[in-house]
Simulated scan of single mutants.
Amino acid sequence: MKILHIDASASNAETSHTRRLSNELVERLKADHADATLVYRDLVADQLPHVDMTIRHAWLPENADDPALVETRGRSKTLVEELKAADVVVIGAPMYNFTVPSTLKAWIDHVSIAGQTFSYTAEGPRGLLTGKAYLVISSGGIYSQGPFAANDHLATYLEAILRFLGISDIDTIRAEGIAYGPEQDQAAMARASGQIGALSAAA
């Protein structure tokens, strides 16, 4: 099993809910699969530039040897190959202003490449990836249900982009309502950890 672990929280390992939970999940996966290998991407410690039109030009075959585009193509190709090689993708992402951290959006823009991770066909776009994904997300409020559910552009977006790229086997682990006080924070983390344990047991 090849695991790609993506962390996008701006908080450190001690204070970040998603860093702690996604690490717990990865450790469970490694314990359950003795042959597991891991590629880890900390998108805060090693931030990617936001993409511009050069990324489209960089992937064109006729520009493969353009010295001005070598760095852009090389960076994107490395990230694409990591994603294509993964059997399991684990993404740890807190909700920032109802959606994904900008560091994670930058990674998505680097790996969502026509002809590499998806293609256009006469019937519409088709994802080229396979495998499984785990989304480990956190939020100060509660967005999985209730009056603020329409504001969830974190889980809904990540699930949509992964399905667009071809990964339809997705489990989402939530620690939500963590801003409602220490007791709610602890309870949310306990529930999320329980989800991880249940997923591991079922694997």
Rank of each mutant, 00 (worst) to 15 (best):
D52L: 05
D52R: 09
M53S: 15
T54R: 15
I55H: 11
I55Y: 11
R56Y: 14
R56N: 05
R56T: 01
H57W: 13
A58R: 11
A58F: 13
A58T: 09
W59C: 03
W59L: 04
L60W: 12
L60K: 15
P61E: 07
P61Q: 13
P61S: 09
P61F: 09
E62T: 12
N63W: 07
N63P: 03
A64D: 08
A64G: 01
D65G: 03
D65L: 05
D66I: 04
D66M: 06
P67K: 11
P67S: 10
P67N: 08
A68W: 00
L69T: 04
V70N: 12
V70D: 10
E71M: 01
E71Q: 14
E71I: 00
E71K: 14
T72E: 12
T72Q: 14
R73L: 00
R73M: 03
R75T: 05
S76D: 04
K77M: 02
K77L: 02
K77W: 00
T78P: 00
T78A: 02
V80W: 00
E81T: 06
E81S: 01
E81K: 00
E81G: 00
L83E: 06
L83A: 08
L83N: 04
K84P: 00
A85K: 00
A86Q: 09
D87G: 00
D87R: 03
V88G: 01
V89H: 08
V89S: 03
V90L: 06
I91A: 09
I91Q: 11
I91K: 07
G92C: 10
A93H: 11
A93E: 11
Y96K: 05
N97M: 06
N97E: 14
N97W: 08
N97V: 06
N97R: 06
F98M: 10
T99V: 10
T99L: 13
T99H: 13
V100S: 09
V100Y: 04
P101W: 13
S102Q: 15
S102C: 08
S102M: 13
S102K: 04
T103I: 02
T103W: 11
A106T: 13
W107K: 13
W107F: 11
W107D: 12
D109P: 12
D109R: 07
H110Y: 05
H110A: 08
H110E: 10
V111A: 15
V111T: 02
V111C: 13
S112C: 11
I113P: 12
A114L: 07
G115R: 12
Q116E: 15
Q116N: 11
T117L: 08
T117G: 08
